[in-house]
Design a protein around this nucleic acid. Structure first.
Lengths: 228, 228
DNA sequence: CGCGAGCTTGACGTTGTTCAACTAGAGTGG
DNA sequence: CCACTCTAGTTGAACAACGTCAAGCTCGCG
């Protein structure tokens, strides 16, 4: 579904990534942008397909997913406001991850070739874009270090802290991820997630009830994350 | 130790990453470059320190290492000819990995601010650089996927195939990595590496004798890598 | 010849996966 | 309104994978 886009100048993107663009330059980008609505579960970007558009997410929570041999691995979870697809544009315009809506989402599709043209003509903009995309990669690498080195207590602690700090900005939140998705994020089986959550619950470090999570003892959780 | 650098125009770097630079531009870069000699074990770039120079490796094999809590994790292994430090320059000029010589190495240090200046003034060059640095990150992520999802047979197979294809370009090679380093690369204990190598040896898939490795049945090894 | 670092080996215990059975809740159709 | 089905979640038991430990080995070097 497509909306009008007359309010681009008020967009959060204007003040952040695009802050070094002139009004004319930003206008050129905005005139090609279109709003989309995604339902929970919709594929926003599809791994291994050609990428023609970036998506600026204005509402909702998404997961970045790598698929190999049928099994999913969640590389990152992110929420509005954020630009999606950056990691794709630097090489061959083939999507490296899939991006899938965890909640209903709104997004604004930005024409990739226009975006690239702007990058070519505005060096500071290019540096902003590069910086953002390497941040994304570094985050992914840090995540994999966690998965590669820690055992499940530590990984689950990592995931909970990440969600609390970066996504829900609260010690108490309602999960948008299923148990299976938590497992794909933490790199273990869903049963292991359930066991670990229950243990943390019984030790009064967190309170779990279905999708409702509350972190009761953040210090202890941070220690578990560190120790592994 | 520092050599003269009159032969920069013959450097492999000139024909690859720097192919889109004019003679003047390349000259500007070369006039600031200096040759260094590293002994096996030397730290070429040090994690978490400020980075003033890129290093173009002209001889030798190196490992990219992430350190956390005393334990090492090898992110990648690379050999000459290759440019080292790219992943660092996109953000805050703080080295994200350490780079350590696995063999005696020669390298050519390139002034980072000159390099950046060239990037700012030559868009195609900037795209070349960006492309190279994202390749590096994608490689790292693929490596971590392997570590995160496969069990030790698959990981060891991955490592052997990587070394055979990308580093030694032969089915038969002499390892520059210790058993501990193989373990840091595959994300498991050194004992597990030894067990797995012996099993592969007993199954006549590889032949191991100390540092000497020969891949006897590449197809079978590739299958093990896929299956996990 | 003796020392030490890296390598090898096997035993053992922990961790985590797999499997199978069961429960709860949501959606569907008669 | 009640079966029926389907999916997600939960539980525990059996098993396999892996790390840790402790002991012994090998080889190069002083």
């Amino acid at each position: 579904m497509i909306f009008d886009n007359k309010k681009c100048v008020e967009c959060h993107l204007r003040d952040t990534l695009c802050k070094c663009l002139s009004d004319n330059e930003f206008e050129a980008l905005a005139s090609y942008s279109r709003l989309y609505v995604y339902k929970k579960g919709d594929v926003i970007l599809d791994q291994d397909t050609k990428c023609f558009e970036l998506v600026y997410l204005t509402k909702g929570v998404v997961k970045f997913v790598l698929n190999n041999d049928g099994r999913e691995l969640i590389v990152a979870v992110d929420k509005a406001q954020t630009l999606i697809g950056l990691a794709n544009i630097l090489n061959e315009d083939i999507n490296y991850f899939s991006v899938i809506a965890l909640t209903d989402c709104n997004g604004c599709a930005i024409n990739l070739s226009k975006f690239k043209m702007l990058m070519m003509n505005n060096k500071s903009f290019m540096f902003e874009v590069m910086s953002l995309s390497t941040q994304m990669f570094r985050g992914a690498i840090n995540n994999f270090i966690s998965v590669a080195r820690k055992q499940s207590n530590g990984r689950v602690a990592d995931v909970l802290i990440y969600l609390s700090d970066k996504i829900y900005n609260s010690r108490k939140f309602v999960l948008d991820l299923s148990r299976q998705e938590l497992a794909d994020f933490a790199g273990c089986s869903k049963e292991q997630i359930i066991h670990t959550l229950r243990n943390l619950n019984n030790d009064n470090i967190i309170k779990v009830s279905g999708k409702n999570i509350e972190i009761l003892d953040f210090e202890k959780l941070a220690t578990i994350s560190k120790v592994g």
